[in-house]
Design a protein around this nucleic acid. Sequence first.
DNA 1: GTCGCCGTGTTAATCGAATAACACGGAGGG
DNA 2: CCCTCCGTGTTATTCGATTAACACGGCGAC
Lengths: 360, 360
Amino acid sequence: MAHTLKSVAEAAGVSAAAVSYAFNRPDRISAHARAHILDVAQRLGYAGPDPAARSLKTRRAGSIGVVVPVGMSYVFRDHYFAELLTGVAEIAERRGAGMTLVPFDLDAAERARTHDEDGLRDTLDAIRHALVDGVIVDGLAGDHPAVRVLIDRGLPVVGSTADPAFSSSVAIDDVAGARAIGAHLAALGHRDVVVVLATPGPSGVARDVTDEDALLPYSSHRLAGFREGLGPGARVRVVTGGFNDTGSGRAAAALALSDDPSFADPTALLADSDALAGGIVDELRTRGIVPGRDLSVTGFDDGALATDLDLTTVRQPVRDRGRLMARMLLEPDVDERHVLLPTELVVRGSTGHARATGGR
Amino acid sequence: MAHTLKSVAEAAGVSAAAVSYAFNRPDRISAHARAHILDVAQRLGYAGPDPAARSLKTRRAGSIGVVVPVGMSYVFRDHYFAELLTGVAEIAERRGAGMTLVPFDLDAAERARTHDEDGLRDTLDAIRHALVDGVIVDGLAGDHPAVRVLIDRGLPVVGSTADPAFSSSVAIDDVAGARAIGAHLAALGHRDVVVVLATPGPSGVARDVTDEDALLPYSSHRLAGFREGLGPGARVRVVTGGFNDTGSGRAAAALALSDDPSFADPTALLADSDALAGGIVDELRTRGIVPGRDLSVTGFDDGALATDLDLTTVRQPVRDRGRLMARMLLEPDVDERHVLLPTELVVRGSTGHARATGGR
DNA sequence: GTCGCCGTGTTAATCGAATAACACGGAGGG
DNA sequence: CCCTCCGTGTTATTCGATTAACACGGCGAC
């Protein structure tokens, strides 16, 4: 049943090398012999050399890995990751390479990190075993254990920050983008805002933030940028919103506008993403609050949603990022090793002058 | 630099087997020896046994493959595939398995199919080389060359139709769903309709359909269902809409409502997906045509868009399908081999009684 | 005191292929 | 007519691990 190079070679009356050449190097064998071998192979139901053995010998896997800190099933729902991976896929498919999503549970890894050495090992098993030629890592610092494993494996690793631990990186200047949002709002007189950040994982719905270290790298960057742009006098409170989607945004808005005294009367709600901002807008509307007039709302991404909702946001070239990350792995002619992509403030109707009293 | 099991074993003063056990079978070695070996390994920068070699020996890859007939970069944009893969990913991540998108260009394969034998071989290379333990194939018939290669490789293949060539399958009864749509419209008096189908690939924008064989399997199923439900007296014309998104829907609607005599005055527009229907609704609105009153529009999927647009559509359990497909590969306790999932007609406001004169 | 078993380390066979180096026959040049 | 080179098939080495089978020392049971 299970044929091998050798058994096919016997059946065809040639050496194993000839069969290998027939499948992999047409130029290295006569057309006549090749046709015969391929014919015998087909008759026997031999589809070609075993990929695992081939991969061991050639040291190539034909696929690039992707590691994200949010769970594999999440990337298809999140606009940011979907866009990033679209860019990666565009390059991969034109090079004939596959894309392997490597399971990695950031929460489990964090929990196990100090506690339980073997637990941490387990969460990294898939990363240790992944059959890939290089890896794209988005949202993990260069000194993260998962990254260390990949580097020890000798794989080229493209990161999302300029950390020299990565073989190369494509960062996006989201600090600058967030700063622009902050400055824009400051200029409109806002001095009391709530920032809404997504924290995927089991952390659940909106809540007040205690530990800012637990944020995803880009969230903390943006938070810092917001603060810089708003200036020292501003009051910035933070809510985390669970998944990066409209539902979380709605919940976060509800919390920010609740009676909870720690959130009393902000004049602006700054979201980590358009999706969250979309939820915020929904919640405001159900309360009869008009975004841009009664209360300002900002997003991040400039996706289709931002246009639809007339959202002030930051445009970031996410698909370009994915493309470039993939090219750094698959097209060695890319010579820059660490690239910083720019962002752009897009002002629309969801922001306006601060009012003495916000929503309610 | 590049350490191996053996070199680490020498450095630690033990046998290669001991190192292997230290990494893979803690119970098979003393805790003391294990700690020492792991320590030496870490010091040497050895991340663990080489995945390729390990995969050759164990005959496991730790990842399941996914083959779709639409190009890898498309799956992140299309609601159907995103939903399907979300389901797959949910199961994969709970089993610690990866997900490998295998590049496959249906158009190139079709073009090469008869013409050029070596060309066809090339388009199947990635499928021949993919390092996976099983494959989920959506939208390809059981006798397609790509499927044949996978089966010859001895891989378990889960298909999207009940074809016995597949080791197992999860079909969705979209014929019945489409039939329900057709019957619903027939009951409302519609006898002259245009069906809008997505045909991803370079085929481009909307055009009239000449060759119904070139449709994706599910599209032709649905088309057949529409026809059945509408009954023999109805006039059914077909337009293909390129990508499965709102832009294509808009273009298709524009064509269907144009002066082109072959499309004159339909009373209903039946789309292959909610996304297409969304575009159709957009186009109608810009022309001042009210869906459900002047002209009926139907979708397919029952995603968020359908609710938003108050679209009559068919609910299909796509994520369940993905989950079940993955479980058939990853969880051998699933005993049914060929499953047919039901669909459900969801009537909303976008359909109504046929009028003598449709749009314009 | 002896037998056997258990825990733990080692030996050796094996997974299935790629490819450098070699062999050999015939064509072409001198 | 001989030498060389080219095209094409073969031989043999190598990729880096897993794991069944074996070996051996110490311990408890009788």
